[in-house]
Design a protein around this nucleic acid. Structure first.
Lengths: 223, 223
DNA sequence: TCGCTCAAGACCTCCGACGTATCAGGTCAT
DNA sequence: ATGACCTGATACGTCGGAGGTCTTGAGCGA
């Protein structure tokens, strides 16, 4: 195994074992390189790799720190990976969303605050009846994110965030110009919100399923 | 933005845009570095980072290639990330599994082959009635993986694989020594398999839910 | 006390050299 | 002619050192 890979494993080991804890600062590059028995150049490759997936946070002029290791932060790397997928696997990602999103929406129905409900309502009101496709996409993303956050599970939230990432969603919506799709989306958003306000988890779940299934159906007929 | 980060973005761009396709070979380090306008050392940091998340495959003495970009491969990096999570977030990961696994099991009920059913049966038979905890853990992993693969969704499969990764599962099972837990697990596996054989998606879903919920409940009472 | 200057510390980038692994082509024995 | 073996070219792996840039905080003056 290459020295850089060893270094990655060792740093990972230090974090998993608790020798390095979230927020801790690593020894400076030259010291750490000496400790691990490799050159500064090779160590930098290891650090850079761990930095890409948000394990380490490198601040020039300051030092290198272990991130908070929050699920949210680590799964952020997921969206980076999802960006690489080609169109022919979009349906599979969408199928996973179709499983997760209704469940998250149902969970949210039991936990969402009045204040959050009001915010979602205001958001929909602000969008109006005939928004541009761009506005609708942005709003859709925000709407679902708000709901999923109310599920209270940050892993679930980050996962869905990654799966629904800008790229995937943009690709799907770019061609979604059929007139009734816009109004249908607006109606479905209203219905989901109403179900949440009623604390009706099953209704919320069903509307979320319908909502995603309609996108899935449209996409399937298009590809 | 640092030159290395720019290089990462550029390489990503080349792949996403289709200029580089799965399996393609990249120009050699020195050339690519010159093309992108940075030193070989800095480029190597970018390549190493992309290699960690399985976007690139570097072979010494040969060259650097774009991987297949299969969801399976890319989500493999997920397990690396999951390893970093501390015990207090295990419940959130488990909650996500509780959503995905029953759905995957239900999907499998409609698609699994006779041959795969026989293989799962043989696996359970081989384990016997009173296996060691280690054997049970290994078998459990294999059993669920086999089922999820039959769901036909490779994204779903990889995601669950990552979430159920060795570390998380090992941590959970390490303390699972209560006698009835072992026999209960065996019974539940048999029940899931029976539901699959009956092509009864709802029964399969329910048994999978029960199966995971029991782990969740035990874990919740322990932490 | 507040704000500015400046030097120390740490990461950023680059260069050039050498080590090591892989592959292709040629050589030689069978 | 075929196969194993050798060898050179090629490309990645590792290293040490030299400047450069950014952040931080101590020290100074208003």
């Amino acid at each position: 195994m290459a020295v850089t890979d060893e270094a990655i494993e060792k740093i990972k080991g230090m974090i998993v074992s608790g020798a390095l804890r979230p927020g801790d600062r690593l020894p400076k590059e030259s010291e750490l390189a000496a400790d691990l028995g490799l050159s500064r150049n090779s160590l930098r490759e290891a650090v850079r790799a761990l930095s890409l997936i948000r394990i380490l946070d490198v601040r020039q002029g300051d030092g290198t720190y272990v991130t908070s290791l929050d699920p949210q932060l680590l799964l952020e790397a997921l969206s980076f990976v999802v960006d690489f997928h080609r169109d022919d696997t979009v349906l599979e990602f969408l199928a996973v969303r179709r499983i997760l999103e209704p469940a998250a929406t149902a969970m949210a129905a039991l936990r969402i605050s009045e204040q959050q409900l009001d915010a979602l309502t205001a958001q929909l009101d602000k969008l109006g009846d005939a928004p541009s496709v761009e506005d609708l996409v942005a709003c859709d993303l925000e709407f679902h994110r708000g709901i999923v956050q109310s599920s209270g599970n940050s892993v679930l939230c980050s996962l869905l965030d990654g799966l629904s990432g800008p790229t995937t969603r943009a690709r799907i919506w770019r061609g979604l110009t059929q007139e009734d799709a816009v109004s249908r989306t607006l109606r479905e958003h209203r219905a989901i919100l109403a179900a949440l306000r009623d604390r009706d988890a099953e209704a919320a779940r069903s509307w979320a399923t319908v909502h995603i299934a309609s996108v899935e159906q449209w996409l399937r007929s298009t590809l």
